[in-house]
């Protein structure tokens, strides 16, 4: 292979990276629009409690705050992990991604506990339109977190097996974008769903 074609190969690869990144941003926008629908639906239905409990009766602000803090910290750790990955520090990257993974699990635990409590008390998505909207909005975010965890777990296995090669660092960059995106969506959920309930 001549030097010339090496240059072209490099350009070819960088252009491909660039496209993947841009494509992922557009994908995130579509995902955000899906959440926008769920937020709009929640806003329309939040007072339609049909005689059932309202948000003020149900929500525990402490629990929501705990979840928020866990997720915010995980956003920080995923950032640190990305710096390590970009610098090729395999062990550090693995550690920080591992912590992110555990924080994600903890967040899911908090959410699952909250859902369990509500359902246990007999307030399910069948109870009222308000609760339907609540469960679906928060649950959709939870499903995204689960997706993120599966993705993160897979890439961790990949790094252990094959090391921090170029394609995986590219995929990790997308993963960290996804994680930050979920964080932002959660901040809106925290505000619109939990805080607004007490206004």
């Amino acid at each position: 292979m001549t030097d010339h074609s090496l240059v072209i190969d490099k350009e070819h690869e960088e252009a491909a990276d660039d496209r993947t990144m841009f494509g992922f941003w557009v994908y995130l926008m579509t995902d955000l629009l899906m959440f926008a629908v769920l937020f709009a639906v929640y806003a329309v239905l939040r007072n339609n409690t049909a005689g059932g409990p309202s948000g003020r009766d149900l929500f525990s602000p402490e629990l929501a705050l705990a979840g928020t803090l866990i997720l915010l910290v995980s956003s920080f750790t995923v950032g640190v992990a990305m710096i390590a990955a970009r610098n090729g520090l395999k062990n550090q990257a693995l550690t920080w991604f591992g912590i992110t993974f555990l924080l994600g699990l903890a967040f899911l635990g908090v959410e699952a506990y909250e859902f369990y409590e509500f359902i246990h008390e007999g307030h399910t998505w069948r109870t009222s339109a308000f609760l339907s909207a609540f469960f679906v909005l928060v649950g959709t975010h939870g499903v995204h977190i689960i997706t993120g965890l599966i993705w993160l777990g897979t890439t961790l296995v990949y790094i252990v097996k094959r090391g921090l090669n170029k394609p995986i660092v590219r995929k990790l960059a997308l993963l960290s974008l996804f994680w930050h995106f979920l964080d932002i969506v959660w901040i809106f959920i925290f505000t619109v769903v939990y805080l607004m309930a007490f206004v």
């Binding site: 639906v41 339609n48 409690t49 049909a50 998505w125 069948r126 109870t127 339109a129 339907s132 909207a133």
Partner: peptide
């Protein structure tokens, strides 16, 4: 499928 009430005529659906 799971009996939510988004678009129903009862229990606050719209």
């Amino acid at each position: 499928y799971i009996g939510t009430n988004f678009f129903t005529t009862t229990l606050g659906g719209n």
